[in-house]
Write a protein that binds this DNA or RNA. Structure first.
Lengths: 238, 238
DNA sequence: CGACCAGTTGACGTAGATCAACCCATGTGG
DNA sequence: CCACATGGGTTGATCTACGTCAACTGGTCG
């Protein structure tokens, strides 16, 4: 399994060298994905899990004539870990930009868990944080306006990317379009564009081509009323 | 632990008599809760989990001057199961109407898992379904209008209550207010009221006092474009 | 008896959707 | 090497679903 994932689990939960070795030796294949390439579709039955190594993935559902992006995923995430126990996908999983994933069969993970029961809790915890993020977005979408939603999105990404070492000099690579951001935030692309312009005018966001910079992160977090508690980052201090 | 939970796990996952006995013997206390009584608040560190035995609970977050209900919980749910691994609450947990819960210490659950590793997967799966429900509501809140959101809510409750034997003659006890429904659906109470009136006029919903009846469930599910796939009910046929 | 709360209704205000151009960079085929 | 198509981004005009405000009803409770 990939280093980025192992490093994250290491810093979040602390791994014994034994566990680390076991994770390293999980059989897997590396797969490269092109822009907008689909990994899994609604209704598919998965028999593998994918750990994102580089790039971005998102999950989406088509609802009526709309596309809703349910979540964005950064390297180190295993966005289909739930297929271990809920094999039928209730949404699509898609790559944005060029990305690479490590694909490991369910059987390999299950035997990993048998040999190292302590790892079960570590992976379970990963799915709990995933759930906490969804829960947070239920709040965002139900109770916040456009400005706060878009602001929260960039704040959250900064924290999650920082956690895997991909947020440097207040910047990160971001191959999504404004329309993608709109689909995350439950907004139209026109209104999303205007909201981003407000963030730009307030010097809270610089977004050109595929790079996003947050020149004044604290101010952005304050403006968006963002708190990273739900991402459970305190584990970093372990 | 409570029968309602055990019965659900039984039908969902299938339990050996050994596992069932172990679940039955988990030490716990029964606690009765009044209307709007709080169990846990944002920031609390939990050292117990509660399994809902009767009544309703909801999770909420205060966002600005608004209250967002993140999820509703029916008997058989363990809405704070995640505190096993994420001890700090990022939201409040509150009772509606009179309800009873079984309170079991984390330590008891952890030793249960040690003695019966197979139960870990069953409980993990429970948290995955919890996450699937949040994910679904991200879609609902991001992409559906008021009519669909409110309709989806009643459809979902019917399925979840049916699963634990609390949906009979197309009816269930429902001690929430219209304002509560508004807080689930991310709507104002005035607009929620008007939306409910539309459902009533279309003979899809009868709601008087604390009882809800869905006289034409299929039609309601069609109108709300509801599909129960995400609740993973197929396990019922096991 | 008044206080309070859920529900209901009407009038009005607004955030954000929709529609329709237009710009610009990139890519493609003749 | 140009002609044109395509897809992001941007802008302005208009529309609408929903929020807000305010008033009134009818139960319930002390």
């Amino acid at each position: 399994m990939h280093d980025r994932l192992i490093a994250r689990l290491q810093s979040v939960a602390g791994l014994t060298s034994d566990e680390r070795a076991a994770l390293n030796s999980v059989p897997h294949k590396v797969r490269t994905l092109g822009d907008r390439e689909s990994i899994l579709q609604e209704g598919d039955k998965a028999s593998n899990c994918v750990a994102l190594m580089s790039g971005f993935l998102y999950r989406q559902r088509i609802i009526g004539d709309r596309r809703q992006i349910l979540s964005l995923h950064v390297p180190g995430d295993i966005p289909d870990l739930m297929t271990l126990y809920l094999p039928t996908m209730d949404h699509d999983l898609i790559s944005v930009g060029q990305s690479t994933v490590a694909v490991a069969p369910h059987s390999a993970l299950k035997s990993l868990f048998e040999k190292h029961p302590s790892l079960v809790h570590i992976f379970w915890r990963e799915t709990l944080i995933d759930a906490a993020i969804f829960r947070h977005w239920v709040g965002n979408l139900g109770a916040m306006d456009a400005f706060h939603r878009v602001g929260q999105l960039f704040c959250e990404l900064a924290v999650r990317l920082e956690f895997v070492g991909l947020f440097e000099k207040n910047s990160f690579s971001f191959p999504l379009t404004q329309y993608d951001v709109a689909s995350v935030c439950g907004l139209s692309k026109v209104h999303t564009n205007r909201t981003i312009q407000v963030l730009r005018k307030q010097r809270l966001l610089i977004w050109r081509d595929d790079m996003v910079e947050l020149p004044n992160r604290e101010e952005l977090e304050a403006a968006a009323e963002f708190s990273a508690d739900y991402l459970q980052r305190k584990a970093k201090s372990v």
